[in-house]
Computed example of a mutant assay.
Amino acid sequence: MFNWLRQKHSHQSSLVKLFEQTKQPAANTALNKVRFLVIDLELTGLNPRKDNIVSLGWLPIIGGEIVLAQAKHYLVKPPNGVGQSAIYHGLHDNQLTHANHLETILRELLTQYAGYVFVAHYSALDRQFLRTACKQHLGLAPSFRFIDTLRIEWQRLSQKNTLIAQDMLQLSACLTRHKLPKQPNHHALEDAYGCALLLLSQIKQCGKEATLKQLYKLSRA
């Protein structure tokens, strides 16, 4: 039995290492040549040490276009139930009885999207939860370098000397400011789609000659 567990953990660790070793696009890559994966998580709370992922949504952007045919939305059954967090994401324990195993979802994510540039709105939270989940279920945690649309928007507003209130950086407010359609809040795939629309608008504002290096620089604001 212990040999089987060791073999399983070794295989899972190899998956993470392969994901890490897959080359990312060069810094001077034009943005319309970059393959992005926009991802969003719904959570039972904000602490990755004690809270859990209850749903994931993602969709790729390839060649400057959102690939809806490859969009994915998964529900995840948390080990301790959703508790009061249901009032935010709208998911209840009875809806998650036959939900997906997080390990299976993580394996798909790392296998199919190695080499993609990951994107999220306020990526620090998604990154922390993904790293914690990978460490728990796969034995190792990738670094998960992200483009952050919230930080790009903060940079854009700062350059205009705009006084930035906290709610101005919420995804819905950003979509409104870019004259993009609002998406339902706290649904992982809908939020990922809204984030993808925002990213494409931000890329357009960067100009045709913009590179991945410039986008990363804006994302570190």
Rank of each mutant, 00 (worst) to 15 (best):
2 F>P: 09
2 F>R: 12
6 R>G: 13
10 S>P: 07
14 S>N: 12
21 Q>A: 13
22 T>I: 06
24 Q>P: 09
24 Q>T: 11
26 A>K: 14
29 T>K: 11
36 F>L: 09
36 F>P: 00
36 F>Y: 15
37 L>Y: 01
38 V>G: 03
43 L>I: 05
47 N>T: 01
48 P>M: 04
52 N>V: 00
53 I>Q: 02
56 L>T: 04
58 W>L: 07
70 Q>P: 05
73 H>Y: 10
76 V>C: 02
78 P>D: 05
82 V>N: 03
82 V>R: 01
84 Q>T: 14
89 H>R: 10
92 H>P: 04
95 Q>C: 07
98 H>V: 10
99 A>R: 06
103 E>A: 11
105 I>L: 05
105 I>H: 02
109 L>R: 00
110 L>E: 01
111 T>Q: 10
112 Q>G: 09
117 V>R: 07
119 V>F: 02
121 H>W: 07
122 Y>F: 13
122 Y>R: 08
127 R>I: 00
127 R>F: 05
129 F>M: 03
129 F>N: 10
132 T>A: 14
134 C>A: 03
135 K>I: 11
139 G>N: 05
140 L>I: 13
140 L>M: 14
140 L>V: 07
142 P>T: 02
142 P>V: 06
144 F>E: 00
144 F>H: 03
144 F>R: 03
145 R>F: 10
147 I>F: 00
151 R>F: 12
154 W>R: 12
156 R>H: 13
156 R>A: 10
160 K>D: 07
161 N>L: 14
162 T>G: 08
164 I>V: 14
167 D>L: 09
167 D>C: 13
168 M>Y: 11
169 L>N: 04
173 A>D: 10
175 L>I: 04
181 P>Q: 05
182 K>Q: 12
187 H>Y: 09
190 E>K: 12
198 L>A: 01
198 L>K: 01
199 L>E: 04
199 L>Q: 02
200 L>F: 11
201 S>I: 05
201 S>F: 05
202 Q>T: 06
204 K>Y: 09
207 G>T: 03
207 G>V: 03
208 K>Q: 12
212 L>W: 03
216 Y>L: 11
217 K>W: 11
217 K>I: 08
221 A>H: 15
